[in-house]
Design a binder for these strands. Structure first.
Length: 709
DNA sequence: TTTTAGATGCTTTTT
DNA sequence: GCATCTAAAA
């Protein structure tokens, strides 16, 4: 076994956190300050001190984070850390609920619903309650997120409604009764949505003293990662599980709280010392990831946050270059710029894995994706539409789900409506009839009807019945594929080969499972990341949310304009802007060496066409001298020619163009660097400007949007 | 009455 | 691209 020299491998603050043994502790770990390192080393240290792995609980944001940390702890100590229970709050709560299922409202098993199921169920109940939706009543999607919000608030639903949805006050009664029906339906059908897993476990801990004691006894040391993204129910859960021994260490960064839309409240982290009086608070600000010019910028961004634990990151690395800003004419130009710079970097010896492009919302990268494809640059995309949410995957999973639970009306509905001539009405009728039987699968196979769709209905029943009898999960999967394939081709004439491939990927994943139930649960709780995730030789494209906790040498943040990042402020509150700022902070703290901020001057709108947009408001929060404007050519990668930029002169601005008429001494304003004076005219396209904020910049008039003062 | 096709609208972010 | 809405066809 290797002995670890903690003093030399950790800085003093890290060491303090790692050596912490008993009692509550809160570690405020700034971005890049070695947060994972602390958790891993502390895990190792606890085991070294003789704590049994079984007595340690590690709650993380993704299962992957947990398994990575366990693996690293194992490498560090040479001991098996496999006894440590680690995973997401949801997965942990689910496993506990299963253990104590007899004490829960659920009689038999619990199956986990994913978002699509949740949506479908709400839709069904909504239609039952209101055959036609009252005017102004929230739509199914809005209702689903409302329910989630209300339940993760952790208090009486009425209170949550009053607090978060005052504008719906006219419907509160209806919403509450719908919520009640939704909850009781799930219990009666053995279903649980994400929030139910947390809420039921919390309730069990709160009401059954014996359970709480047993759990506290089992998990004597609890570590919580990403504490800033916990919601009220999760905080309750921690408090209930840890109150006997108080050996809980929460690690997080209030500045990186970006999940309030699903009930996370960064005040949890601020309140931790109050929840656990006497908690040791350790703050880590030494940043090992980036260089000071980058951190000056990120510090400036987060300094504008209204509520936070104040801290400034300090670079431990020397040198470095400030972020580079590029103004793109439109999204095509933006894509071309990023592609060209990526090609440059690859040419300069960077590996594709060193590079990432980040954006606020998944669809922002569409243009870039096709541009990269044309350029022959491989990429993987994280975040956005999950494999599981694609229609064809849902179809196939519905088939499998019916094998596990033949009374799953939602599954029936989905499959039956695929059949020619069967719409929602017919599907519901058949589902109701079949579900009343002891063996719904067989009942469908023998479904008596003379309608023109009767044969295809019986065929579906036969396929299901057949697959149900198959020996293994892969065999059942094959059965599902055999039945589904004709529908796949019919429904997706354009891209069914691609979709088929995805289904085969899914089949490969399913092949690793013994048991159908486990497979389905895992799919809901920890969906596979888009296919071959850690694929080497590929640049990463990612939403900012999915980039949390990761780092790259070169990072591009694209679509840095109003309406994209932040998204249109329509009906949004200041609190949302605070979260947007934190999100921007998360994005900028992913970078190690070079950060590019790309600002399109126009973006395309759904109907086709483009509208002009202004740079993101967050630029106003960064002192201009901390940024550099891109001064090189933008070679359009596809054509190999410099892209010709003809920016139409905008009101109050000098257009690009040779006759910009700027002369030394002229006062100008730059959207980012602010006011300044022209120091020297280098060519018809280039001028040197001395900015009032200090700093002389050479600006390319095609790129810089200078306005005369 | 039910189904379907065709148009429209609308897109944060995720366990 | 997807889900929902609307108007025409079975």
């Amino acid at each position: 076994m290797r002995s670890i020299d903690y003093e030399s491998e950790l800085n003093p603050e890290q060491l303090e956190a790692v050596e912490h043994e008993l009692g509550p502790a809160l570690v405020i770990a700034g971005a890049g300050s070695g947060k994972t390192r602390i958790l891993v080393y502390r895990l190792a240290r606890l085991m070294e001190k003789g704590i049994a792995p079984e007595n340690i609980l590690l709650l993380t944001f993704t299962r992957k984070a947990a398994s990575t940390m366990l693996e690293r702890a194992r490498e560090l100590t040479g001991r098996d850390a496999g006894g440590v229970v680690g995973g997401t709050f949801h997965a942990f709560a689910y496993s506990m609920l299963r253990r104590y299922v007899s004490r829960t409202p659920y009689r038999n098993g619990i199956s986990v619903m994913d978002r699509a199921d949740t949506q479908a169920l709400i839709n069904m109940l909504l239609k039952e309650a209101f055959p036609s939706l009252p005017k102004g009543f929230p739509r199914p999607q809005a209702l689903a997120s409302l329910f989630g919000r209300v339940k993760s608030f952790g208090q009486a639903p009425e209170e949550a409604l009053k607090r978060f949805y005052p504008h719906l006050s006219g419907f509160h009664g209806e919403i509450l009764s719908l919520l009640e029906r939704y909850d009781s339906y799930k219990v009666s059908q053995g279903l649980a949505d994400y929030d139910d897993l947390l809420v039921h476990w919390r309730d069990l801990l709160a009401t059954e003293k014996e359970v709480a004691e047993q759990v506290a006894d089992r998990f004597q040391f609890v570590m919580v990662d990403e504490y800033q993204d916990t919601n009220a129910v999760q905080a309750d859960m921690i408090s209930l599980m840890c109150s006997p021994h108080r050996n809980v260490m929460a690690v997080g960064d209030d500045a990186q709280s970006i999940y309030s839309f699903r009930g996370a409240d960064f005040r949890n982290i601020v309140d931790f010392p109050r929840l656990f009086p006497g908690a040791k608070v350790i703050t880590l600000v030494r940043n090992y990831r980036a260089t000071q010019p980058i951190l000056d910028c990120t510090n400036a961004i987060i300094a504008c946050a209204k509520e936070k634990f104040s801290k400034e990151l300090l670079a431990q690395r020397k040198g470095g270059r400030p972020p580079i800003v590029y103004f793109a004419r439109d999204e095509e130009d933006q894509a071309g710029f990023v592609t060209a710079r990526i090609a440059d970097a690859l040419g300069a010896g960077f590996r594709p894995e060193d590079i990432a492009v980040l954006f606020r919302a998944s669809f922002h990268s569409f243009r870039l994706e096709s541009c990269l494809q044309r350029a022959g640059i491989a990429f993987v995309k994280r975040g956005g539409m999950r494999l599981l949410e694609a229609a064809h995957v849902k179809d196939l999973l519905s088939f499998l789900r019916l094998l596990a639970n033949p009374w799953d009306k939602l599954g029936w509905h989905r499959l039956l409506t695929l059949l020619d001539g069967v719409g929602p009405k017919t599907a519901s009728r058949i589902a109701d009839q079949v579900c009343a039987e002891d063996d719904p699968l067989r009942a469908l196979a023998e479904y008596p009807s003379k309608a023109r769709w009767a044969a295809s209905v019986r065929e579906l029943g036969g396929a299901l019945d057949n697959a149900a009898g198959s020996a293994s999960l892969p065999a059942a999967f094959d059965g599902a594929m055999a039945w589904y394939h004709p529908f796949l081709v019919d429904r997706f004439p354009l891209d069914h080969p691609r979709r088929r491939q995805e289904l085969e990927q899914l089949a490969a994943i399913a092949g690793r499972y013994q048991d159908l139930e486990t497979f389905l649960t895992d799919m809901a709780l920890e969906p596979p990341e888009n296919g071959q995730e850690e694929q080497s030789g590929a640049v990463t494209l990612s939403t900012v949310h999915s980039a949390k906790g990761l780092e790259w040498k070169i990072v591009f943040i694209i679509s840095m304009c109003e309406g994209r990042f932040p998204p249109s402020p329509r009906g949004r509150e200041e609190a949302d802007m605070e979260e947007e700022r934190r999100l921007f902070y998360v994005a900028t703290t992913r970078v190690m060496d070079q950060l590019f901020l790309v600002v399109p001057e126009s973006v395309s709108v759904p109907g086709g066409g483009a509208i002009p947009v202004s740079p993101s408001r967050f630029f106003e929060e960064i002192p201009p001298h901390l940024l550099t404007a891109w001064a090189g050519d933008n070679r359009s990668f596809a054509s190999g020619k410099p892209s010709r930029r003809s920016v139409p002169p905008q009101p109050g601005q000098t257009g690009g163009g040779p006759s910009s008429g700027l002369t030394p001494g002229q006062r100008v304003r730059h959207p980012i660097f602010g006011p300044g004076v022209v120091a020297q005219v280098l060519s018809s396209k280039k001028v040197k400007v001395a900015f009032d904020c200090g700093g002389v910049k050479t600006l390319h008039l095609d790129y810089a949007r200078l306005s005369r003062l």
